[in-house]
Amino acid sequence: MQRQALRTWLFLAPAGAWFLCMLVLPLIVVFVYSFGERGAAGGYAPAFTFDNFLNLGSRWAAFKNTLILAPLGTLICLLIAYPLAYFLALKTSPRWRTVLLILVIVPFWTSILIRSYAWIYLLGGQGIPALLNALGLGNPRLINTPFAVLVGIVYGYLPLMVFPIYVALERLDKRLLEASSDLGSPPWRSFLQVTLPLSMPGVATGCMLVFILLMGEFLIPAMLGGGKVFFIGNALVDLFLQSRNWPFGSAVAVALVLVMLITVLAYMRFTRRWAGGRDDVSLM
């Protein structure tokens, strides 16, 4: 028995050490730093002050941008990913499914940096706007706008949304749809009453993945927003790498971690509710 406990311990040790060194300790450092002062030439100087937290308001615009565009981006991803995943999981022959799934992943083989560059050209004045102009549909400014950032977000994060939903739908017992139909439900109501609720864990996972990553996103806004669409991730990069105000950066990071934590907790409550006792569900 003792031997087994020891073995379990040894198995868990690498993961535990990783968790401790790569997550817990850095978080403690960030937390401690957030009460410090900026050093004379930047960096960190020990102190105990709440100034950094009181100054969080100066990054309100970045928080606001992130808290609007991250959920919006997540929602658009969801609205595009769900039909795509549905089509892949339920309406495609197995042979085509493999091909199409690979096509969903293929863009990931290239760096997001290069793909964002492609979008800079596509959304730039000589790209899609020029095409629209040639078609007489006006010449809208796309690049360096929130729209361009959303395009980049949806483009970059779509697969992360597609896969959890695909897996949930693929695992869905197709006989449940037959049962629903057998019990008198037309296909669209079967979708709402069976397919959709049973794919909710996949939807929640996908939304969580995309949302959490978007909260920390900085590359896409920097490249497609041209510095005019500013996320909290960009504020962090600036604070650590440009102004080197590590304590304030740490305070922003702590605030970001808190926002994410709240989101994850909400997510867990939500999924638990789907998994367990829903007495009062409306069935159309």
Binding site: R38, S58, S243
Partner: peptide, 14 residues
Amino acid sequence: TDPNRAELMARFKS
């Protein structure tokens, strides 16, 4: 090293 210039730039950007 001037904190005000750094912060000014950060405010401008955000």
